[in-house]
Write a protein that binds this DNA or RNA. Structure first.
Length: 491
RNA sequence: GGUUCCUUGGCCGAGUGGCUAGGCAGCGGUCUGCAAAACCGCGUACGGCGGUUCGAAUCCGCCAGGAACCUCCA
């Protein structure tokens, strides 16, 4: 079922029909995290956005190779001219080996991804494991004449590149503006121009993370790893490159230039960028000091959090907004998402038990087409979810026998919800925390329910309410239905 | 300062020229011993001022407020 989908291409600033290079196959690369701190809400946005794309493409029948890197070297600290990188600095602060820092936060990131039900990419390469490829990339760019060596470091010659190429094509910048507006930082004598960026950086004596190269003992530049690793695993041209909008310039612009300089062709067909999570209207980020870690969301242990939020609530919260819109964090919005998700999941779980009729008064096929159309229109998950809520009404209404549905339609509805809720949106039912003695516990509560039913039959409301209220205090929801009672764990 | 973008009902958030999503909250009702859940009904919102048009939240201009990038960042 390879239906046509449209995606917004940052390169052309419009939605385009997605046509893969090789029919039926998709190569996609997404910039992963720099592992020097705990995974926070901001990290969840691209992870979930491209997880959604990954899942949807696979659902449509594409064979997808999804590469998402772990950045564990490089990334110079902005205010440090001594060539110290974030990871090395964090290691020094913690008195750890740099690779210990990398391990701790890589584990933390993986744990967070698992909680959010984000699928593992096909390949998750580390920058530190691809130094040889990066050196090779530097060599190719030097050979093509778009880089120069200076005091053991190698820089990309942006102005030379811009003479025959459009540097700024992705971010909409003009080279003249860039030249006149670039901030001149001190101690940049090695570069011919402030616009030039490092491909290889000579390590200062105190710099711990270093590798030998033809030019110096040092480390690769900021932007090089993504070019080296995407080329290695996806080839010199591939379909989709994703990442946060904040990476558009200079990171992705530099990637375009590097790939073009090294291989003589444009590597990426579709550039996709997710927008930012904001807090009080401002971007949430570690360096801004306003990031709330995903661990804190799970525990509620943060001054701004009114309560703990489950990872699925966070996932659903993000899916209810389009990936290219900013999404503002607030307790009210999260609580609304939590309740909405609960209603959606409960309806999903009861489809197979719906009573059936001879005829249907609902049009499942239309619903299905609407949901697919929404997702195919640049991953419009909020619209898709809105239609799924139409499905929720059908389900609840059928459960109350106010709406008729045939067995065929019920099966169709179940298939649709299974596909979208679980497989594509990646939502899952919350597993109740303490489930050690679930079987015994269930029997005990069922027994109490039985006693309560007897009390109700005798119109002994005092006993009936006592059981309900006390169980509610412990953490159970008791609901009286038409035929008997039901109960569940409260979250 | 430069570049780009945003401003939708109590909250969140879709929608890009007419058909005026959805969720949460709220109000009224049905059901129930009561409650909860579920269902039914109820809100005509698009920052301000002009303009284009038969018609604008949607296009154009100006103004106001906000953001991202220009420096590591998802």
């Amino acid at each position: 079922m390879l239906q046509e989908i449209q995606i917004y291409n940052t390169l052309t600033r419009k939605k385009e029909v997605f046509v893969p290079i090789v029919p039926g196959k998709v190569g996609m690369y997404v910039c992963g995290p720099t592992v020097y701190g705990p995974a926070h809400l901001g990290h969840a946005r691209p992870a979930i956005t491209f997880d959604l794309l990954f899942r949807f493409l696979k659902h449509l029948g594409y064979k997808v190779r999804y590469v998402r890197n772990i950045t564990d070297v490089g990334h110079l600290v902005a205010d440090a001219d001594e060539g110290e990188d974030k990871i090395a600095r964090q290691a020094k602060l913690n008195e750890l080996e740099p690779m210990e820092v990398v391990q701790i936060y890589t584990n933390d990131f993986h744990h967070a991804m698992q909680m959010l039900n984000v699928e593992s990419p096909s390949i998750e390469p580390r920058a530190s494991g691809h130094i040889i490829e990066q050196i090779e990339e530097v060599r190719k760019i030097l050979n093509s004449g778009y880089a120069y060596e200076s005091n053991g470091s190698v820089y990309f010659d942006v102005e030379k590149y811009a003479k025959t190429n459009d540097y700024g094509i992705l971010s909409g910048r003009k080279i003249e503006d860039l030249i006149s507006n670039t901030r001149t930082l001190d101690g940049q004598d090695e570069k011919h121009s402030g616009l030039d960026f490092a491909l290889w950086k000579k390590a200062q004596p105190e710099h711990i993370m270093r590798w030998p190269s033809p030019w110096s003992d040092g480390f690769p530049g900021w932007h090089l790893e993504c070019t080296a690793m995407s080329t290695k695993y996806l080839g010199q041209t591939f379909d989709i490159h994703g990442g946060g909008m904040d990476l558009t310039f200079p990171h992705h612009e530099a990637e375009i230039a590097q790939a073009k300089a090294a291989n003589g062709k444009d590597a990426v067909h579709y550039w996709m960028h997710n927008n930012m999570i904001t807090l009080n209207g401002q971007k949430m980020g570690k360096s801004l000091g306003n990031a709330i870690s995903l661990e804190q969301f799970a525990t509620g242990d943060h001054p701004l959090l009114a309560q703990a939020y489950s990872p699925m609530t966070i996932r659903f919260f993000m899916l209810q907004a389009h990936y290219r819109s900013t999404l503002d964090f607030s307790n009210e919005a999260l609580q609304a998402a939590e309740k909405g998700l609960d209603r959606l999941m409960k309806a999903t779980e009861k489809i197979s038990q719906l009573p059936i009729s001879e005829s249907s008064s609902v049009n499942i096929n239309e619903l299905k087409n609407n949901v697919y159309a929404a997702m195919s229109d640049d991953l419009n998950s909020p619209i898709a979810i809105a239609y799924l809520f139409d499905g929720v009404k059908i389900i609840n209404s059928a459960a109350d026998e106010k709406t008729a549905i045939t067995a065929t339609d019920r099966d169709e509805l179940k298939a649709l919800f299974d596909a979208f809720i679980y497989e594509i949106l990646g939502l899952k039912a919350e597993t109740s925390g303490e489930s050690g003695n679930n079987k015994v516990l269930t029997e005990v509560v069922d027994l109490l329910m039985k006693i309560r039913l007897e009390a109700k039959a005798n119109k002994d409301w005092a006993t009936s309410d006592k059981i309900r209220n006390e169980l509610a205090a412990i953490g159970f929801d008791i609901k009286d239905g038409k035929d008997g009672v039901s109960w569940e764990f409260k979250k």
